[in-house]
């Protein structure tokens, strides 16, 4: 991607956004009937489906590692074979998606009130339908909505956002083009009310002095996403409660 201008002189990014702008986020909750909770989210062109089952009895071989006084969180991250520009050979099981599965599990281990459900398991299945950067972020946000839909108690919403740093400017919510060029990438997920960091990951080179600024913009992105998700949840509840109120 050398030679491509990621940030124009006028201060616009490659997809026309300003540095501190999120992509358009659209979401829906309760997209599946079978799952206890489900959600669909779009971050620009990144599209993710999430389904949550549980809490239920511990099943499967993975559950053998479970600690019995808290709920066992089982995650599965999978990318549809048609989600990327080049067709993927395996939707899951490669190192990167194994790592992503692990990161999702870790994130939600910290956010779900697992001690309320001893001897049980909560499944989170995430499927990336289209990948355009920020897969982890979209997955976390979708899973949060699905967990809320399933009515699983959490400390707070978990909101994730990525950030980068190009030409002395911190960028919020980076897309695939920005991600794949040699720019630093910081992924953060937070609990928006307390601004506690649940998960942080950084790739590529970034000077220590800039970390604070990039972290700030990522956290800002997370709290923006929180407002969007919160509004979506409230709207969903309104819709769901209208038929109830008309019945009585």
């Amino acid at each position: 991607m050398a030679g491509m201008e990621l940030l124009s002189d006028e201060g616009f990014r490659i997809d026309g956004r300003r540095p501190n702008e999120l992509r358009r986020i659209q979401c829906r909750m309760g997209v599946f009937a079978q799952a206890d909770g489900s959600a669909y989210i779009e971050h620009g062109n990144t599209k993710v489906l999430a389904a949550v089952y549980g809490p239920h009895d511990i099943q499967g071989s993975k559950g053998r590692a479970a600690v019995h006084d808290i709920a066992f969180i089982n995650c599965q991250y999978s990318m549809a074979t048609f989600s990327t520009g080049e067709r993927k050979q395996r939707p899951r099981g490669d190192r990167k998606s194994q790592e992503m599965t692990h990161h999702l599990k870790q994130t939600f281990d910290g956010a779900i009130l697992t001690h309320l459900y001893p001897h049980s398991q909560i499944d989170i299945y995430v499927e990336v339908l289209q990948s355009d950067g920020g897969n982890y972020c979209a997955s976390v946000n979708a899973a949060t909505l699905a967990l809320i839909d399933a009515g699983i108690p959490m400390k707070d919403y978990v909101c994730a956002c990525s950030a980068s740093f190009i030409d002395e400017t911190p960028l919020m919510d980076i897309n695939y083009t920005e991600e794949s060029s040699a720019t630093p990438q910081l992924i953060v997920s937070i609990l928006p009310k307390s601004e506690h960091l649940v998960f942080v990951e950084m790739n590529s080179r970034l000077h220590e002095d800039q970390l604070s600024r990039v972290l700030d913009i990522a956290v800002k992105g997370c709290s923006d996403i929180y407002h969007i998700l919160d509004r979506a949840v409230k709207e969903h509840l309104m819709e769901a409660s209208i038929p109830l109120s008309s019945d009585t």
Binding site: Q106, D109, G110, P184, L186, L197, V198, F199, V200, E201, M202, N203, S204, R205, L206, H207, E208, D209, L211
Partner: peptide
């Protein structure tokens, strides 16, 4: 003093 990776593990 350039960060190349940063990772938080554990809940």
């Amino acid at each position: 003093r350039e960060l190349v990776t940063l990772q938080l593990t554990g809940s």
